[in-house]
Write a protein that binds this DNA or RNA. Structure first.
Length: 546
RNA sequence: GCUUCUGUAGUUCAAUGGAUAGAAUGCCUCCCUCCGAAGGAGGUGACGCAGGUUCGAUUCCUGCCAGAAGCACCA
């Protein structure tokens, strides 16, 4: 790879100068006028050598003899060293992008087995946009890891027991015609006034002592899970493991009970004191002896431990950040969970928010995943009416999913996503469909080339490399960085930039009937491959037409 | 009160301590006899406040201000 080659040459030169410990980067400069790669190495070395940045840059440049593929090295600005690639080096990258289907793959997680847990909806409740968000991020991180050489297993942890189930069953008993999601909302609303009845059902679910409740529970669970499965297909996720709270509950309870020195008695409850580690106290068994979410998560750790992996990543909203620290801290005090606790990582993301405030499925003011998908699908379908497409239904669904996932994956983690329903229905500008559209346009161009029998080759390559070519070659670095930081948004930003650059090139050049049709087709093919790969890493489909 | 996260154009988002702070959207102009106008070209417009570290701070540190989340028997 070009960047790493430059990096090692710079490092060697720094050592020669006696500034081997200088911390520097080789990166894409802000503007093409500053070359294809730039380094701040001289600025970093200046401090160590006690020289001015300019002097250090001169010294450093003199030490860098020649790098294969680099045509010109310049000093600019405060003391940056800029590298300009040779025409043939750029050509080579374009050819790789166009023809090599491993283009963009990295090896930073090579031969690692990684389990990623995400989505985590609750049966009996609705699949809301928070789950859509978790799914988009989790799926993308999973794919990023796969593109970096890891073997990834996908896990989904779902709450199939607890008070919410009783509320839904009670709601269903009042009106069997409603969906489970609606039944839950109704049950939650009526909980205060029918507390005893619903609590009674909760007990029956737990004991499995009532045939009517059992039947409702079994059919409700089955219906919910089948429904979710349909959504996973639309979203492009396939899970390897499903974990349920009904399994983790007894295991968690046993773990807590077997460690009285870790989980001490307090007001009749069993708690873990996190204060010694800078955390806070959390309850693991209630004063009634019931396991809380914390205890269940210990059970989950034990279940996961039976699977094979080097690292386990759990993806949740940031509201669980502090909670998770306490659970992991507690797990490290339990002998049989020590190893897995050390292998577990928590990745948190911001929350879906509205201008009106926090949504809650108890209040019933959620936008469900389905309703959002449906609305967006309709908008997309309307847009496609002027075009005659074979499978408009499926494509509009792909566009809708692309729009949602893009809006989640375009920003860095940790920040809440302000969800604007109206804006999310717009498929223009900085959006998933913008990328998908550029991609279909590239494909359409390639179809035209095939009909006109224009082969993709370098026979008529222009002397000057275009900005599109010079942008293309940075794709592998973008993927590497995104994978390293588990931040898909770097890929999103890049893919948007690439689509924009391609659109601009397309608008200003005649590709098939211009001066360099063959190279133009090659370049189109390289762009198409890169856009498709980028979209695939984001978990967004790249339809052939739209 | 304590802990964590976040403050960048009107709005929604970018930018490993470096070069003229990038997009999108909005608003104002243009561009389909031409390979897909869900497009392209141009204009408008922003680093919460105050210190500190540094050759250099939107970025790191401290304080303040503002918003969000979490902090014992819910999940």
């Amino acid at each position: 790879m070009l960047r790493t080659q430059i990096e090692s040459e710079v490092k060697k030169a720094l050592k020669d100068m006696g500034a081997g410990e200088a911390v520097f980067v080789v990166e894409r400069p802000d503007s093409l006028q500053h070359g294809d790669f730039a380094t701040n190495a001289a600025l970093a070395a200046a401090k160590i050598l006690k020289k001015s940045p300019k002097e250090a840059a001169d010294l450093l440049k003199a030490k860098i003899l020649s790098i294969e593929g680099v045509d010109k090295i310049e000093i600019a600005g405060a003391g940056f060293i800029n590298f300009f690639l040779s025409r043939s080096a750029i050509k080579k990258e374009v050819e790789t992008a166009a023809t090599d289907n491993t283009w963009g793959n990295t090896f930073i997680y090579e031969s690692k087995a990684i389990m990623v847990e995400y989505t985590d909806p609750n049966p009996f409740k609705e699949f809301h946009i928070g789950h859509l968000m978790s799914n988009a991020i989790g799926e993308s991180i999973a794919r990023l890891l796969e593109a970096s050489g890891a073997t990834v297993t996908r896990a989904n942890y779902q709450g199939d027991v607890g008070l919410h189930v009783a509320k839904a069953i009670w709601g269903k008993m009042q009106n069997p015609a409603t969906t489970w999601g609606e039944a839950y909302v109704y049950g939650a609303q009526q909980y205060e006034t029918h507390k005893e009845e619903i609590d009674g059902i909760n007990k029956k679910v737990y004991e499995r002592s009532d045939t009517e409740v059992n039947a409702l529970y079994d059919s409700g669970r089955k219906t919910s899970l089948a429904h979710f499965e349909g959504l996973y297909t639309i979203l492009g996720t396939k899970f390897d493991f499903y974990f349920f709270e009904s399994e983790t509950t007894p295991i968690g309870r046993a773990l807590v009970e077997s460690c009285p020195n870790v989980f001490v008695e307090s007001d009749g409850a069993r708690v873990f004191r996190g204060e010694e580690e800078g955390l806070h106290t959390r309850v693991f068994l209630t004063s009634q002896g019931l396991p809380t979410y914390e205890a269940k998560d210990l059970g989950l750790l034990k279940l996961k431990n039976e699977k094979n992996f080097d690292t386990s990543i759990t993806i949740t909203a940031s509201e669980q950040k502090e909670y998770f620290k306490v659970v992991l801290a507690a797990a490290k005090h339990i002998t049989e969970l020590q190893t897995i606790a050390q292998k577990t990582m928590h990745v948190s993301h911001g929350m879906m928010r509205f201008t009106e405030g926090k949504m809650s499925s108890r209040k019933g003011n959620v936008i469900t995943g389905e309703s959002l998908l449906k609305d967006l699908t309709n908008v997309a379908k309307e847009k496609m009416q002027e075009r005659e497409l074979a499978d408009a239904e499926k494509i509009s669904e792909q566009v809708a999913v692309g729009a949602i996932k893009y809006s989640v994956l375009k920003q860095g983690s940790g920040k809440d996503i302000i969800f604007d329903a109206e804006k999310s229905l717009s498929l223009e500008g900085d959006s998933g469909p913008y990328i998908q559209y550029a991609h279909t346009r590239a494909l359409s161009l390639l179809r035209g080339a095939k009909e006109a029998s224009i082969a993709a080759d370098t026979s008529d390559m222009p002397k000057e490399a275009s900005s599109l070519e010079r942008l293309l070659l940075h794709f592998p670095d973008v993927v590497r960085r995104a994978a390293k930081e588990l931040e898909p948004h770097y890929v999103t930003t890049y893919v948007t930039e690439l689509a924009s650059e391609f659109n601009s090139w397309y608008a200003n050049e005649r590709i098939l009937a211009g001066n360099y049709p063959h190279y133009g087709v090659l370049l189109t093919q390289a762009t198409e491959q890169t856009l498709a790969k980028g979209l695939s890493i984001l978990g967004i489909s790249a339809p052939e037409e739209m």
